[in-house]
């Protein structure tokens, strides 16, 4: 009887250990869509912050940005020629000249085009 209990406890520990280990190794990616944005800003403000080298704290953070669509390139949209946002899918129904409000993860500043880049973006529709 005692042996049985010890065996059961050992098994339980092993199973729980394996499960938490698995959960740690194969944890899910961040879900930017569900994260609360740390900063709400405009495209111009965001670009200025990076140009003044005052934006290190924004790297890898979830932001919401507002601006006018200036270019659409496949699955990505550039707003105000200052922020480039990539989406998971092609954004149908968005046209150059539209004002959009979106959420995405800031991945850094691109010196070649002088733009800030966001990935995993999603549109925020007005409620």
């Amino acid at each position: 009887m005692k042996k049985k209990i010890v065996f059961l406890i050992v098994m339980l520990v092993l199973v729980v250990g394996a499960y938490t280990g698995y959960k740690y190794l194969y944890k899910d990616h961040r879900n930017i869509t569900k994260e609360v944005a740390v900063v709400e800003t405009s495209a111009a403000q965001l670009q200025e912050q990076f140009q003044n080298n005052a934006a290190e704290a924004l790297l890898n953070k979830t932001l919401t940005v507002t601006g006018i669509v200036t270019q659409i390139e496949g699955k990505s949209i550039t707003i105000d020629d200052k922020v480039h946002c990539s989406f998971k899918y092609e954004m149908k129904g968005v046209q150059v000249g539209d004002e959009i409000h979106l959420k995405g993860r800031c991945i850094g500043y691109d010196d070649l085009f002088e733009i800030v880049k966001l990935d995993q973006s999603t549109l925020i529709t007005a409620e």
């Binding site: 190794l25 194969y26 961040r30 991945i107 070649l112 990935d119």
Partner: peptide, 29 residues
């Protein structure tokens, strides 16, 4: 999938910039 690049077709100069945080792996860890 968000790598920038510019090619100057007058002289063949090419520059490319990848933001390292933009590399996505299958496994989050």
């Amino acid at each position: 999938e968000n790598v920038s690049a510019i090619l100057n077709t007058d002289n063949g100069e090419f520059a490319s910039l990848a933001l390292v945080k933009g590399f996505r792996f299958k496994i989050a860890l």
